[in-house]
Amino acid sequence: MTQLTSIISCPHCEHQACERMPTDACQFFYECKGCGTLIKPKPGDCCVFCSYGDVPCPPIQQAQAGGEAGPCCGESCHG
């Protein structure tokens, strides 16, 4: 079952927030609620949840479960 929330941790101030992930697109930018920094994914990751969340985005979860990744995520996202 696909999990739709992830705890995202800011790489600058370490603030954590529980956020709902989009199911139809990857979220490339996220504004930290602690320090206001606009963060983006690490190189090779498709979204901020895959880089800084405790749960990867729904398309990657589906791919890891043996399904196909959604239209926003290619095979290069997480090998």
Rank of each mutant, 00 (worst) to 15 (best):
G79R: 13
K40W: 00
H15M: 11
V48T: 04
G36T: 09
P58H: 06
G44S: 13
I7G: 04
Q3P: 08
P43M: 02
I39Q: 02
A17Y: 00
F28C: 05
C47F: 05
T5G: 01
K33E: 15
D54W: 00
A17G: 07
P22E: 12
E19F: 01
C13Q: 09
D45H: 12
G74I: 11
G67K: 11
V55W: 01
C77A: 15
K33H: 11
A69F: 04
C18N: 15
C57T: 05
P58N: 07
P71K: 12
G34F: 04
H15C: 10
A69G: 15
P58V: 07
K42H: 11
M21D: 01
C72S: 12
F28N: 05
T23S: 08
C18G: 12
G66D: 08
C13R: 08
S6V: 08
C32W: 01
V48N: 01
E31N: 08
M21I: 05
C26N: 11
Y30L: 13
G74T: 14
Y30E: 00
C13H: 10
E68I: 03
C35A: 09
G67C: 08
M21S: 02
G66M: 07
I39L: 05
S6W: 06
Q16Y: 04
C13S: 10
C10E: 13
A69T: 06
L4G: 01
C35T: 06
G53Q: 08
E75T: 14
K40T: 10
Q62P: 02
C10H: 13
G79V: 11
Y52K: 05
Q61Y: 04
P22I: 00
F49E: 04
P11M: 03
H12D: 08
Q27F: 01
H12F: 08
C35W: 02
Y52M: 07
G36F: 09
V48P: 01
R20G: 06
A69W: 06
V55P: 02
I60G: 02
Q16L: 10
H78Q: 15
G66W: 01
Q62C: 11
S76I: 07
G74F: 09
C26T: 12
Y52L: 11
A25C: 14
E68G: 13
Q16H: 10
A25R: 14
G36A: 06
S6L: 08
L38V: 15
C57N: 02
P56S: 10
C32I: 07
H12T: 11
A63P: 02
M1D: 09
M21P: 05
T37Q: 15
